[in-house]
Simulated assay, not measured.
Amino acid sequence: MDIATRADLDVLLRRFYTAAFADPLIGPFFTEIAGTDLDVHLPRITDFWERALWRTADYRSNAFAPHAALHTARPLTAEHFGRWVQLWHATVDGLHRGPDADRAKAQGERIALAMLRRLGGKDAPTAGDGPGFVPLAAVELRMAA
């Protein structure tokens, strides 16, 4: 079944962030550096994704600013964004199939690449060799096709 409602997004995002917080590579950005309280943060993230997928939520925050602050505290790399994409795809695929699920995965890839480029400049590396890493160069090639 496809992602169809805000409630679907809530379940998807809770599952994704539970995995992301526990991940040894990207988890510390959420738990140690940002000290993210998922119950407080989740409504805003859900607004973001509801707007990204269906243009129905009133999301007006600057999604880049908190990532820039994290990057200042500890640099975010292509490996970190690649892991985020990998976990995002796995979570979406584990719960949903359909056009909106595909759109959510593609949008996640676009966001990861845009964030990486904004943080590291247009020449930011897009490949890595860490364990479980999804090279963002591969994402770029797929998006260009």
Score class of each variant (00 low, 15 high):
A22D: 14
L119Q: 13
W49I: 03
G27H: 02
A63S: 14
A78D: 12
I45L: 15
F30R: 05
F30K: 11
G98I: 10
V40L: 15
A78M: 06
F64A: 11
A4K: 13
W88Q: 12
T31C: 12
K105C: 12
R55H: 11
G98R: 07
W84M: 12
E32H: 07
T31P: 02
R14K: 14
I3L: 15
R83N: 04
F133N: 13
R60Q: 10
V11P: 00
T56M: 05
L12Q: 07
S61F: 01
H80I: 01
E32M: 03
T5A: 09
W88C: 07
D2M: 11
L119A: 11
G130Y: 01
H80K: 04
A138T: 11
N62P: 08
I111F: 06
T72F: 01
F64Q: 07
R83W: 00
A90V: 02
A124N: 05
T56R: 09
T56G: 03
G132F: 00
D10G: 11
T46C: 13
R6E: 13
P43Y: 05
H67M: 09
D39V: 03
A34S: 14
A124V: 02
W54Y: 11
A138V: 01
V134G: 00
D39E: 15
L113S: 06
A90I: 06
V11S: 11
L136G: 08
L38F: 02
G128P: 08
G132C: 08
D100N: 14
G98A: 12
P66T: 04
A63Q: 05
L13V: 06
D129Q: 12
H96S: 11
W88L: 15
R51T: 07
F133A: 08
D102S: 12
K122T: 08
A65S: 13
L12A: 15
A138D: 15
R97N: 09
F30Y: 12
A114M: 13
F81Q: 03
G94N: 06
M1T: 13
H67W: 06
A69S: 13
D39W: 00
L95Q: 04
W88R: 05
S61E: 15
Y59C: 13
P99M: 08
D93A: 15
T72Y: 01
L42Q: 09
A57F: 01
P43I: 01
R83F: 00
R74V: 04
G121I: 04
F81R: 10
A127N: 10
A124I: 02
L13I: 05
T91A: 14
G35S: 10
E50S: 14
W54N: 02
D129F: 04
G82N: 10
P131I: 01
